[in-house]
Write a protein that binds this DNA or RNA. Structure first.
Lengths: 339, 339
DNA sequence: CTGAAAGCGCTTACAG
DNA sequence: CTGAAAGCGCTTACAG
């Protein structure tokens, strides 16, 4: 086992100073052609690579960014990571992935642990618990220390920073309008509880569309799901107890479950009930019938977030404090679950 | 904006030496109760946190491990990351995620870039291209430098290191046997090309099961898919040109596509054709009919891999060179696509 | 053209 | 009980 070779060792072997080796390897004009050649050849032979940690300490930057997400198993978040990765790599950055597991504490611990020099900046989507508590001190603190943060998807207006979002309300409005245009009157909504920012916004869009067309907003047709497990029964109830033409669900899981429950009740999708979901993931694509959905391009969101973060990192120190919010367009992908 | 406070600054403020501050914060008995109290109070007030990079340089370890995977969008790999994350976090490690995108070059670049002090060890699953080229020099090199590597899922026997796998051949054997026990004779296989290690092993298990029951191995019933796009037609052909009772697919995507194509051809699953997939992911669970599948617990595999890596990192330096290969059990999860 | 020195932020063996 | 010094691996302004 040959340990990593350092400048010091090379210097010793070649009987020159460490400075000379360092400068030679960086091709400094200060050093004679001759010495440079010699040092470079030797370094190559021993496969010298500078120690990243030493460089980080010296330069006060690590070329590493961290993305904190609630869950990696959600297809959407996986696509975001993918987008972040690619843009980061193109720019010579590495990506540290942290999972908050929807827990406030884990989010705080992760941020505090990494804010001490380990990384250059954060990209994050808030955990449910954080959104519920509305406690964002950990984020403010990091920003105050001069470390840039870019939020995406699950954001808060209480923090000033760069953000990447979709227009959740508008997307929901459009999906609902799509149903209205088809002549449906009994349009149900399956959403999350209101403290989840995107759930709330999507609910607003749905209501706005109904009102806009002078349709009655029937509270019985609005289901807000708290628990991510065992929500099948709630959905079955919704479908059983109401005459429903169409269902708009704020995520894939709710959409596919609505279809399954409808089938169990002997209702056909899309013949008896049309269904639109949210997030164009793997489920929407491969379920039978495949699901019409609001596509939310995670790769693009992640890429954009990474780009914004890196731009800020590489901007001339403390330039303007102009924070931007980028809105990624969504579109309705029509598949088999609507007609 | 208040910048991070350092030992130096605290020392200056309190008019003591840096050593005294450092020792006080580490609660060294060398320092008087009095001074310790004072320093600790001050540090707390200014929210001092030691700089991780400086510690890494000093300690020659970063408490960061890297996982290199071909693709994050595959549900299986996302679950592995999740498993790695949790075990790593419990042990105070962070996780850097790198994507090879199935490319040999990206795999090499990532490893070389990180092997210089940035991380303490690797967990990896080979890219397709690496498996095809059979060039593992980048991995050997890293191991020779004394950096531990744990391989999982897509591994190679040409590298000596810790490994976490499932018994792909046995799992495929069992799945095939399940069909045989039901009395099916015309059992098709949808696999990947042979250079993908797990595809090959699963194919072997399938063949073994057939031979074991004196069933003819019909090459026409074995489809090996190279391209991950546009394989629908190949599957449709397979189903059209042969009388098939059952299909064993080596991944979810092939399984769900087989079902879709069967339906298009007017064949019902499971009434006309039974289907078993591989990897118990989101597709298998939510497709209609839901898919009977060989479950391959990614969370467990990732957790195990992380555990092995961390144990090696924390073992008394160069202990025994005893490499272990852990086999994670699989099971057949019965759902609606078989009868 | 080459090298000694200082410094990034920390720890720790050693002196006093 | 406190502090100066050396060191982790590197870079760079400065001297010679």
């Amino acid at each position: 086992m040959k340990r990593k070779v350092t400048l010091k060792q090379i210097a010793k072997e070649l009987d020159v100073s460490i400075s000379t080796v360092s400068k030679s390897l960086r091709n400094s004009m200060e050093i004679s052609e001759d010495t440079r050649q010699k040092v470079q050849a030797f370094a190559k032979l021993y496969n010298y690579k500078p120690n990243n940690i030493a460089l980080s300490l010296k330069n006060k930057k690590t070329k590493t960014i961290c993305i904190i997400i609630p869950e990696i198993i959600h297809h959407f978040f996986a696509t975001v990571i993918s987008g972040v990765e690619h843009v980061a790599n193109e720019n010579g950055y590495n990506v540290l992935v942290c999972l908050s597991d929807e827990s406030f504490d884990k989010e705080v611990i992760n941020m505090e642990m990494l804010a001490n020099g380990s990384i250059d900046g954060f990209i994050m989507s808030l955990s449910k618990e954080t959104q519920l508590k509305k406690d964002f001190h950990h984020i403010t603190e990091v920003i105050n220390q001069g470390m840039p943060v870019v939020m995406f998807d699950r954001i808060t207006n209480e923090i000033l920073c760069d953000k990447v979002i979709i227009d959740d309300s508008l997307a929901a409005f459009n999906a609902t309008q799509y149903f209205i245009d088809k002549g449906f009157k009994k349009i149900a909504l399956i959403s999350t509880v209101d403290y989840v920012s995107v759930g709330k916004l999507r609910t607003e869009g749905y209501i706005k569309a109904l009102k806009n067309s002078d349709l009655k907003v029937d509270e019985n047709l609005i289901l807000k799901i708290e628990d991510t497990e065992n929500f099948e029964d709630s959905i079955a109830n919704l479908l059983t107890n109401n005459e429903i033409d169409a269902v708009f669900a704020v995520n894939e899981l709710f959409a596919v479950t609505a279809i399954k429950e409808a089938h169990k009740l002997g209702k056909k999708v899309p013949d008896d009930i049309s269904v639109i979901g949210f997030t164009d993931g793997i489920i929407s694509k491969y379920s039978s019938p495949s699901i019409t959905t609001v596509s939310q391009n995670g790769v693009k969101m992640g890429g954009k977030a990474a780009k914004m973060l890196i731009e800020r990192l590489e901007a001339e120190e403390e330039e303007e404090e102009q924070y931007r919010t980028e809105v990624i367009e969504t579109e309705l992908v029509e598949r088999e679950s609507t007609k």
